[in-house]
Design a binder for these strands. Structure first.
Lengths: 218, 218
DNA sequence: ACCAGCGCAAATGTATACAAAACTGTGAAT
DNA sequence: ATTCACAGTTTTGTATACATTTGCGCTGGT
């Protein structure tokens, strides 16, 4: 594994998991020492993070971990809506009905999965769903854009936490989306995605607002 | 100006303007010598181009200028449709009607502009339109995604050339979009964008197919 | 004639030294 | 008290030397 790749993955994981808090400056020399690589590959990792929006280089010379504000989450979800509504349409148009029928069954069993195997097992089903969408639309440009918003979503979701009731409703929303795609109903798939995104956004914003007083936004 | 920034802009311009043809290998040592910078800033420029999709690093170690195939253009336009249809909806929802009324008037004069000042003056109006959309939606995440597709579009457009009849029809389509946004008619704005994109794609694909025999796709 | 194995060469990946630029704190003057 | 200027310090930007990898061609065998 290349040193630049290692540094990138470590830093990306630390940012997405909130081990690196928003506002933390990412100094080249300090990180190079901590990760045991020289500044050259570390710079490559930082510039890659910056281009993906996981590092804010707009203020001053030293990049800082970007803040997660209600505004930034709302903006992310507008982009997410643009991409995922269209992705659902494309999936309904050319996806494999059998695949999405299977996923619909998985989501129908979400209550058992959550109770028996925990939230990680549930999120694995969601990851399967994302992969199925990518495969169905078969468009590298779309998939790349989707990948970007999913990355940022991980960070917001970690902050919002795992509300069991919300996860059950989310599973139901996913089931509806899968069934619409299975039935090749583009309009319904698009609407079902829009419904799901609105509910998700509201959940995250509610959690975010209740936590702001404790966290301290700069 | 930083050397890495200079190298990035030069290479980006050379790729978008087709001075660097698809398939051309971008060797670090060769480019560093040609642009008069060392390999370190040049590498930063290349990695940035690769992340933006203007350099294909998936085949072999040395990156090559990506091909522009009918498939890749069609894929780009699916992403473009996802983003621009939603952007038009957002612009209709919260844009300044006066701004888009003014742009509609500009597009109505497109025939004069094209005849009197040439295609560059017309494309400047389109650039004004893009800026107005960005300002109206006021969403950095959306704007960043739009910027990406516009960049790739430049390359496809250069290939397709400037068909005068098509430009006149495109101006008319833009006028309709602006009027819909001006009237805060989200559904019409979305439809008008979809119409425009389909016509643009068909034009580019037609030109592309007629040129393939001469150009030689690898 | 073709294929496998090997070695060379050219390209990229990394480390480090040096240059330049930008923030910080101090000091004095208004 | 505030602001401006300046120097020092820290941080990033660049160049170059070295390490490592990978692709390619040569040679020998079948």
């Amino acid at each position: 594994m290349r040193a630049s790749e290692t540094a990138y993955r470590v830093l990306r994981d630390e940012i997405l998991s909130w081990r690196l808090a928003p506002g933390t400056p990412l100094s080249e020399v300090e990180l190079a020492a901590r990760l045991g690589v020289s500044r050259t590959p570390l710079r490559a990792a930082l510039s890659r993070l910056a281009l993906e929006g996981l590092l804010d280089t707009s203020r001053g010379r030293t990049g800082i971990v970007p803040d997660v504000s209600p505004e930034s989450v709302a903006e992310l979800f507008e982009l997410r809506e643009a991409l995922e509504v269209h992705a659902a349409r494309l999936a309904a148009r050319r996806g494999d009905p059998a695949v999405f029928a299977g996923l619909a069954a998985e989501f129908a069993r979400a209550a058992e999965v959550l109770a028996g195997q925990g939230v990680d097992a549930y999120y694995e089903v969601v990851a399967d769903f994302d992969r199925a969408i990518d495969e169905a639309i078969a468009n590298p440009a779309m998939c790349g854009a989707l990948e970007g918003v999913r990355t940022h979503l991980v960070r917001a979701r970690r902050l919002a936490g795992d509300n069991p009731e919300r996860l059950l409703r989310a599973a139901e929303e996913h089931r509806l989306i899968c069934e619409a795609i299975r039935d090749r109903d583009e309009a319904l798939a698009a609407s079902a995605v829009a419904v799901h995104l609105r509910a998700s956004l509201n959940e995250i914003l509610a959690t975010l607002r209740s936590r702001i007083p404790q966290e301290g936004i700069r």
